[in-house]
Design a binder for these strands. Structure first.
Lengths: 150, 150
DNA sequence: CGCAATTCAGTTGTGCACAACCGACCAGTG
DNA sequence: CACTGGTCGGTTGTGCACAACTGAATTGCG
């Protein structure tokens, strides 16, 4: 009945919409998994970086997640209010703010556990297809080699 | 030096971040192309549907783009303020709001022209890779078969 | 007909995302 | 020391995105 965007014109436009819709669909899958812990998907990404890399700075978080301070500042403030992390100015360079987990922030990792299996099932793709998808996405500019500002 | 999210754990988590980053990177590529016309990427998507399918309703737009009225209502109001479209209540069912382009909204299609070539170049992928990517994304749940609310 | 359930668009509130801008801060130079 | 250019994090303003809700309108059922 209704015509879909996918039919309309060129391949790349299709893909842009697919990316856009898939990204929102993915966060929609994460939402019920993270909501019980009071987290959003971007907040979960920040915690993952801290769990994996340890204490870091706002600047490095921005580079890793490709987000600017306008996004990270309020997000980190919310995570600090929840007691998951703390922010501190570096003494020798007061422009830099370091971010490190609290005990509850570290403990949250175990409470959330492994979302992998649930996520794989939710996508409905095979492991082989997921590997292909990852390969293509990491090859595309805008993810691996082309951050927002070059 | 810094470790990347991509290294951290499982395949699907990698892909979720890749999707998230790729989607934002894609809109970042569209931004300078659409900004001269005073449009955002979601607004451009709405116009594309109207250009291709003709007059439609808020409900059908939501189904096609997988967006709810909370997103579409203010977005359509902004497009109406810009003079690109008009919204009207259906006479025989006043719950339904029909959306149709104005003359300037139709003309905008030619003014914007074909973004395809610029987009393909911006991704840095080959046409074959784009086709694979499209195939995988359309196979994944959350895009084709699993809208936010099942 | 009368009334409950459903279908719509819209509103409210929260949280990203990003451009533009700001002020503090640091390093280098004279 | 004062001056200059660049580096930081933060703020402001705009625009999505979505959950939850509102209220009008319609449909279905007895």
């Amino acid at each position: 009945m209704r015509k879909d965007v996918r039919e309309s014109t060129a391949l790349d436009d299709m893909i842009c919409f697919q990316l856009y819709a898939a990204s929102r669909g993915m966060t929609a899958i994460y939402r019920p998994l993270l909501d019980p812990h009071g987290l959003t998907y971007p907040q979960y990404l920040v915690l993952r970086v801290l769990w994996h890399d340890g204490p870091t700075t706002v600047r490095d978080l921005g580079h890793t997640l490709r987000l600017d301070s306008g996004t990270l500042s309020p997000l980190l403030k919310r995570l600090e209010t929840q007691g998951h992390l703390r922010r501190e100015r570096q003494t020798h360079d007061e422009r830099v703010v370091t971010v490190h987990l609290t005990a509850t922030g570290v403990a949250l990792r175990e409470q959330i556990g492994d979302l992998t299996r649930q996520l794989v099932c939710a996508t409905g793709l095979t492991l082989d297809e997921l590997a292909q998808l990852n390969h293509l996405l990491s090859r595309a500019r805008g993810t691996a080699t082309l951050p927002p500002k070059g």
